[in-house]
Amino acid sequence: MPDSKEIAAAIQQACQQRGWGPSKLAREVGIAEGRGPHGVDPGGVRSVKVRTALDDMCTRLNRYAGLPEADELRHTSARLLA
């Protein structure tokens, strides 16, 4: 198993390659992990609580139209709800 210095170096390298910060990298890794090897489950989000939370988040994000971060989150949630 790699030690913490090796892990930190891998994270820094991945961030530099993509031009992302560590938070963006963590978010994208989490999204990719949830997709699995074949992408998002074609059935979409099945949990009613998760679907409701995503709907609520989309509604709240509409208040911040024009902000790139809000637009990105809105698009991500729309993909999950599709």
Rank of each mutant, 00 (worst) to 15 (best):
V29D: 02
A9Y: 05
A53I: 01
V45C: 08
A9I: 01
G66S: 05
L25I: 00
T52C: 01
E33I: 00
A53K: 10
G21A: 11
R46V: 04
L73Q: 11
P42Q: 11
G39A: 04
G36L: 01
A26H: 11
E6C: 04
R51T: 10
K5E: 15
E28R: 05
P37D: 10
V48W: 09
C15G: 01
L73W: 11
K24Q: 15
R27P: 00
R18A: 12
C15F: 03
G36C: 04
N62I: 00
K49S: 14
A53Y: 07
R60L: 13
L61T: 04
I7H: 09
P22T: 03
I31N: 11
A53P: 00
T59I: 09
E28C: 05
R18V: 01
L61Q: 06
I11A: 14
C15Y: 02
G34V: 05
T59Y: 01
S23Q: 13
D41H: 11
G21Q: 11
L25C: 04
E69T: 12
L73M: 12
A65R: 15
Y64M: 10
R51A: 15
D56M: 03
G30F: 10
G30V: 04
G44R: 05
I7A: 13
L61D: 06
D55T: 01
D56A: 09
G43M: 09
A14N: 04
G44C: 07
C15S: 02
Q17T: 05
K5L: 15
E69F: 03
R51G: 12
G30I: 03
E28N: 07
G21F: 01
V48Q: 14
A8P: 00
G66H: 06
E33H: 14
L54G: 05
G21V: 03
K5P: 00
L67G: 02
C15K: 01
A9Q: 14
I7W: 10
R18L: 09
R63D: 15
G30T: 06
R35L: 09
G39W: 05
K5H: 15
E6M: 08
G66Y: 04
L54M: 08
L67A: 09
D71A: 15
V48R: 14
G36R: 02
A32C: 08
P42E: 12
W20Y: 09
R60C: 06
Y64L: 13
I31D: 12
C58A: 06
C58R: 15
H38Y: 10
P68Q: 09
K49I: 08
R35E: 15
